[in-house]
Nucleic acid binder design. Structure first.
Lengths: 266, 266
DNA sequence: CCGAGACTTCGGTGACCGCCGAAGCGTCGT
DNA sequence: ACGACGCTTCGGCGGTCACCGAAGTCTCGG
């Protein structure tokens, strides 16, 4: 009755979770654009996000404060920059879940650089804390074909899958006592295909970086697969080196790190 | 530039998924309340939803049309009624995912009938297509203790778990070729505990109804466990009959099916 | 110490959107 | 056939909120 939300006077005390206020945070084009950008798992500055979303820095500040207050983002000051990142993996998963149900808007290609960047992104990129893109889908498919991953009772690792990861040196142990999903799939909006996510997906990705199979391309979310990485994918999973390989290096070179930071995907 | 959304003039063509428009559907108290109500998996009429949300029927009509247009709800005419239901299980899962991240609002108890109804709901109820409440949590815990359900690599059935379900006569086979998660957990906002969901959860619930372990209480989402059901839970999982049992029948009787349909949970 | 740059706060403006009641249309039950 | 009821459309009202630019604070680099 004395709630700060006078929307419906007679509907007081109706509810448990305040779904509307959470959804409201994502219901704005600008804020949604920022959250989707942050889905790459990196930390962005206020100005970067403002330019990405196409609004003035003052406007961006307001939006970001709302997102922090709502618990979706965490923030960290560093010198004269303020870095923003998603609050955690469960936040990222929630946004992904929403994004995969959202209608697609046409993505106009405006330049050759755009096309190249998109190709690179489409091949391999970060998706919060795991790998996405053609390569990620191919890995997931190959693991399924080899019965390392089974879908009969939801996505889960088979015994041979667990052993396979151990042999690769990937630590997939869950924190004891936690019940967070460790094998999860992520439905990507560009591929519309499932790929490996969750803690195992994150561990796989991290190990790929550590072992020199994968390399981050500058400050973008583009990932390149090294020769060593290609060898592993070929030998372990039968994935051909030629998968979407052409043009990747060009595209990554063509887009300098921060000029026109507006990326083709949210 | 000629987009119907003039919000940010220079931010045209930025994006893939239209997250904002989808979130916008849930960003309104009234629409959110309706969606949460529909999470019980049943079909509601326009007037029921209007009363539940505390708005005029004309207002409800507008909101429901938006939700249908956005693909969240499906609709079906039957005589002079129009029945609304969630579009599908994936829609329900998305809303759940959002709801479990939303802040909780206090739920005032206004009458004795409220208290009774809440107790009944807290014990056992439907949650879209599966069972929720104390009983569902107890089942999930017991399955875990007996190693029928493992969490090491995300929630999944163990071999003995698969066999156990088969012995009970529960058909848990996924539709061949589909990759939908069949073992999933649902974080309930009243319990804040995980319980079994996904296709296996739905199959378990359906079998419970078919086998006479469970009975729907009138047109509400309250579920009562029959004597037969209690016997199964006790013998198979060691769950005591006394779990939150008292007062359930009273509460269910006290609240006639459609008088004052406003329920304590959204 | 001083400018540049990153970020923030603060009015003021304009658009969007949810609310209702009244009136109209279809269906059901008597 | 006629009232009751469920649902819908329409017009008008009011509140909320995203936007910007200008001005202020803080940090870094020379």
């Amino acid at each position: 009755m004395s709630q700060p939300h006078p929307t419906s006077p007679s509907a007081d005390g109706v509810i448990g979770p305040d779904l509307a206020s959470l959804a409201g945070l994502l219901a704005d084009r600008t804020r949604a654009s920022m959250c989707l950008a942050l889905l790459d798992g990196r930390a962005w500055t206020v100005t970067e996000l403002a330019r990405h979303a196409g609004v003035a820095p003052s406007t961006a500040t307001g939006h970001l404060h709302q997102l922090v207050a709502g618990g979706l983002l965490s923030t960290e000051r560093q010198g004269r920059h303020r870095y923003m990142r998603l609050a955690g993996s469960s936040t990222a998963e929630m946004i992904e879940s929403l994004a995969s149900h959202a209608p697609l808007r046409p993505v106009p290609v405006r330049s050759l650089a755009d096309a190249h960047r998109r190709r690179a992104l489409s091949y391999a990129r970060t998706c919060y804390d795991h790998l996405a893109g053609n390569v990620a889908v191919a890995i997931t498919d190959a693991m399924t074909e080899r019965s390392l991953l089974t879908w009969d009772y939801g996505p889960s690792l088979s015994e041979s899958g667990k052993a396979w990861l151990r042999d690769l040196g990937i630590d997939d142990h869950r924190p004891r006592g936690s019940r967070r999903a460790h094998v999860r799939t992520c439905l990507d909006w560009t591929e519309r295909r499932q790929h490996l996510a969750g803690a195992v997906g994150a561990a796989f990705f991290q190990h790929g970086l550590d072992a020199g199979w994968l390399v981050r391309k500058g400050t973008t979310r583009v990932i390149t697969v090294t020769d060593k990485g290609h060898a592993v994918l070929r030998e372990q999973l039968g994935i051909p080196d030629t998968l979407g390989q052409e043009g990747v290096a060009d595209a990554a070179r063509a887009s300098s790190p921060s000029t026109n930071a507006r990326s083709p995907w949210g």
